[in-house]
Structures are given as C-alpha cells and as structure tokens.
Design a protein around this nucleic acid. Structure first.
Length: 277
DNA sequence: CATATGTCCTGAGAGC
DNA sequence: TGCTCTCAGGACATAT
C-alpha cells in the first residue's frame, strides 16, 4: 500500500522523464479489470500525445506528470499500484504503458488489484479535484503549528485523523502506527485531548519516520507487491517497530507485547506500555 | 458540519 | 486436492 515514502520513491524513479515527449499510450490486453482512466483512453491519447513532460511531481500519495499544455496526468497507485520505468513484477498486471522520446523510453503503470486510477486533468479540474480544499498540506512540508491547528478540534482518534488526506497528505495506515509509537502517543487518543508537546512529538516523529523510509525506498509488506523494479523491494519494513508485529515483544521497552486493534475498519498496532491512553 | 460506513479489486491463506 | 470464504486497505460516494 503505497504511502508517501513509496510514492516519493516512484516519483524519483521516473524523475528522468522530465523533458521527454509522449509518443504513444497503450493498455495491454488483460483478462483483468482495467484500471480507471479518465477521460477514456481514446480521448486521453488525443490530449497527451505530442506533449512534453515538464516536471515529475508528487501530491500526497499520487505521482504527477505536468505537461507543457498545462494539463497534468495524475497517477494514483492506491493499494497495489506501481509507477515504474521498466521491469514490472509481471506482465499480467501491467495496466498502462506511456511511451516517450527523450531521456527515457517509457513509464509503466502496474497494478495487481486494479484499484489504481490514472486521470488527465486541466488546471481548472486540478484545482477542483486536488486543490487545497481537497488535499491537505504535504506531510513533509507542514509545520507543527499548522498540523495542530488542522486537527486539534477534531473528536476523532489521532490515528484516524492522521489518515485523513484532507487534513494531511501522504500518511497512510502503516506509517500512522509507526509515527504514533515513536511519539509515545496512544492511537485511540482524541485529537482534542492532545497537549502541545504531544503535537510536537507527533510532528517530529512523522518527519523522521517518513524521511527514513524514503532513504530505505519504502516498505515492502508480506504481500510483496511494492517494489522499485522486478526484484528490488524497499527495505524500511526491517525498521518497523509495530506494524504487523502484534504478539511480538516491543522493540522499544522490551517488555510489553504489540497489540492489534481495529479503528475505522483498519488495523492499528501499538505498544500498550509505551503508548498509554 | 463532522464523522461513519459501504464499495471497488485480486490473491493469499484458512477451513472443511 | 480443491472448493468456498474472509481478509487486506486508499479514496471516494453515500448515510447518519
């Protein structure tokens, strides 16, 4: 499940596409469900073939190809999607090929489950669908004061609030648990009951965890889908302290066992000793 | 208005 | 062995 570090790794992986011109877009025949494309492929092609990619950006958990027309291609990996230069994990789940002339030859969109989305949006559509009203500040850019102001009046548990992309862009289920463990905050704690120093710890650990995870090129989980290329997984999973470690002894205190609970239909992992309610 | 729930999808693993 | 069932969760639509 690509979150900010995995998507940033994908963005860096294809960053050399800046300057390239789109020659062709194809969707390989597959017995599986096609990913969602908007507009549909024919119209998509007419708008982008011949256009130059000026910049490869990122918006939270999405990769952006900014075109010389002002339009943007928004690539959302969601659960199992990958944006790659080459060497996808297999051919079966290859969903889209963007062929280029320029520094690199192609960009691939691979997605095992097919929940991913690729959209072409005009500047107006971008503001409507992905502007500040829809997507909060990037987790790597937000200040501690803004983070606190955006969430301090919420009645939601802090773990659930950190996943809200309108409030904060980039943190997902895995890193939310890791951040709160390192900050020593119980995941069920209501946002409005957090003190200022606790917000400071959350903010500091968020930056540390996300930057470290980027250094390690993200986390490849048990399902093994996320990777940088066919046989190259990320390795931040070896630094996880709580995620999917329930039943094991906490690496910080060495005493309590990591617990798994469900919040908002999602697994949360924490140490009951290090993260008191 | 804020928060909660249902939905999409595929493959892995459990249980019979 | 092979079937059926459940689960994983990001983002969005719909419901409370």
């Amino acid at each position: 499940m690509p979150e900010l570090p995995e998507v940033e790794t994908m963005r860096r992986g294809i960053a050399a596409a800046a300057g390239a011109v789109i020659e062709k877009i194809t969707r390989p025949p597959t017995p599986l469900q096609a990913i969602i494309m908007e507009p549909p492929l024919g119209s998509f092609r007419r708008h982008v073939v011949g256009r130059r990619i000026e910049r490869v950006g990122r918006l939270g958990k999405r990769v952006l190809l900014e075109l010389d027309s002002g339009d943007r291609i928004v690539m959302e990996p969601r659960m199992t999607g990958l944006v790659l230069l080459a060497a996808p994990p297999d051919r079966k789940h290859l969903r889209l090929i963007i062929e280029l002339t320029g520094p690199i030859e192609q960009i691939l969109f691979w997605d095992q489950r097919g929940l991913g989305v690729v959209r072409l949006v005009s500047p107006t559509q971008f503001d409507e669908c992905y502007g500040p009203a829809k997507i909060g500040p990037d987790a790597l850019e937000v200040s501690v004061d803004e983070l606190r102001e955006r969430l301090r009046h919420s009645t939601r548990p802090i773990k659930v609030a950190l996943l809200d992309q309108k409030a904060l862009a980039g943190v997902g289920n895995l890193y939310a648990s890791e951040i709160l463990h390192r900050a020593g905050i119980h995941p069920a704690r209501s946002c409005r009951r957090l003190r200022k120093d606790q917000w400071q710890r959350i903010h500091a650990e968020m930056l540390r965890v996300l930057h470290d995870a980027i250094q390690h090129q993200g986390s490849t989980l048990r399902d093994g889908t996320y990777r940088i290329a066919r046989d190259v997984p990320g390795d931040y999973q070896f630094n996880h302290r709580v995620y999917q470690r329930h039943g094991q002894v906490c690496l910080a205190c060495g005493k309590a066992q990591i617990v798994r609970i469900v919040q908002a239909q999602r697994s949360t992992f924490y140490c009951p000793a290090c993260q008191r309610k």
